[in-house]
Amino acid sequence: MAEFAIETHELSRRFGETLAVDALTLSVKRGEIFGFLGHNGAGKTTTVNLLTTLILPTSGTASVCGNDVVDDNLAARQCIGYVPENVRLYNDLTVDENLRFFAELSGVRAVPRRIAEVLALLDRPGWHNRRVGSFSKGMRQRVGIAQALLHEPDVLFLDEPSSGLDPEATREVDELIVRLNREFGMTVFMNTHMLDQVTKICTSIGIMNQGRLMVTDSLEGIKSRFAEDRSLEDIYMHFWHNGTADPAPSEQVAR
């Protein structure tokens, strides 16, 4: 089994004149909760789209669970679960029908049992026959996470998982992510703007700026480069404003 759940080498993606992802070289170890930070348009979602095989790279390589996302994309898809930012699913169908649909597409055996397990994991065992159309954003987000867990993926990609959720729902999502990571050993790759969330649950982070990876390390590793009293927000803003891959000693935040 490969040491890294996700690996990219000089991965680039261009849309016309715009270089959305610029020579991204990144490794995420198995069992990590990786927080991928950056402003809007930094290239986070494009990176997730590349890693989840939704789009093809312009150059470079990427693999998930040791499977190349271009040459072996079906095997790569087999080991990933993906929750987009806005999960709306099929409003005319019930939770059970929505989950059955995605479970069958993923080749899950014993579908009813697995659906029951996943809903129990989300602490929503009574949702089977409820129409998704009547759900709030937070409820849809939970069903979105449920659909991503049906085939027991090794790596879970979450794009802004707490965007638009109330504090209680955000906390539930955070607890679920930690539980999936600790109990099931799932690697989590999470695009987020929420620095509190990153501080609370992530074990490692990467910061993107204009398509380039500024820094990647464990949370402690990054913090140790700066003064003790510097928050993650200070560090994030430092990389955003300086736009350098790593702070030179003279540029470091005063210790």
């Binding site: 898809r77 993906y82 699913l89 597409l105």
Partner: peptide, 15 residues
């Protein structure tokens, strides 16, 4: 595409 369902389907092992 509008609902995001397409993305979910295309990240499944389906041609």
């Amino acid at each position: 595409r509008e609902s995001g369902g397409l993305q979910l389907i295309l990240t499944r092992p389906v041609f």
